[in-house]
């Protein structure tokens, strides 16, 4: 894919990719932007190449997910190797209050409930409900089999409903 086509494709899925980056970074806006920037840089520099085996969006989401995971690993290393000079900011993974997005009460409840779910279940639910993907597409992004993705999705749905009911009672 040539650079102009690449940027056109990125423009088409950019808003959705930002939502996905937020989901991969536990709602932390600055980390999500960093992950998205690094992902785009990989694509623009040709370090990640789209081979057309999946849809562009699925491929991009896989890159964003891996890039966010790499950033988390770097932060963990940064805690152990402070002299190396990692530039990433250290945090506890919760949304940064300064960088947090303005949320409605309903969205805050949803985010809180999602935060209590295991990562894979959270990601499966986000991809299906937020991004309107099929479970097969979600499996592709998560790098798991269809059966595994379906299990994460079903358990995630049950867990999320339970969490939402609990917070509704409070």
């Amino acid at each position: 894919m040539q650079p102009p086509d690449l940027e056109r494709e990125l423009d088409r899925v950019h808003i959705a990719a930002f939502g996905w980056a937020l989901a991969c970074c536990a709602g932390d806006r600055s980390r999500a932007e960093d992950a998205l920037q690094s992902s785009y840089l990989k694509i623009v520099d040709g370090r990640a190449r789209f081979d057309g085996r999946s849809s562009f969006r699925t491929w991009l989401f896989g890159i964003v997910r891996r890039t966010a995971a790499e950033a988390r690993r770097r932060e963990r290393w940064g805690r152990w190797l402070p002299l190396v000079g990692f530039s990433a900011s250290l945090g506890d993974g919760r949304p940064d209050s300064a960088a947090a997005l303005i949320r409605s009460e309903e969205s805050r409840r949803l985010e809180l409930a999602l935060g209590k779910l295991p990562a894979r279940q959270r990601e499966a639910l986000h991809l299906v409900f937020y991004q309107d993907m099929t479970i097969a597409q979600a499996a592709e992004v998560l790098g798991v089999s269809l059966g595994t993705a379906r299990t994460h999705y079903q358990r995630g749905k049950a867990g999320l409903r339970r969490m939402l009911e609990e917070t509704e009672g409070k």
Binding site: G19, L101, S104, S107, L110, F129, Y130, L164
Partner: peptide, 11 residues
């Protein structure tokens, strides 16, 4: 519905 609201806010 809540996911759609979240998507709308993020966008």
């Amino acid at each position: 519905d809540p996911f759609a609201a979240l998507r709308h806010e993020d966008a």
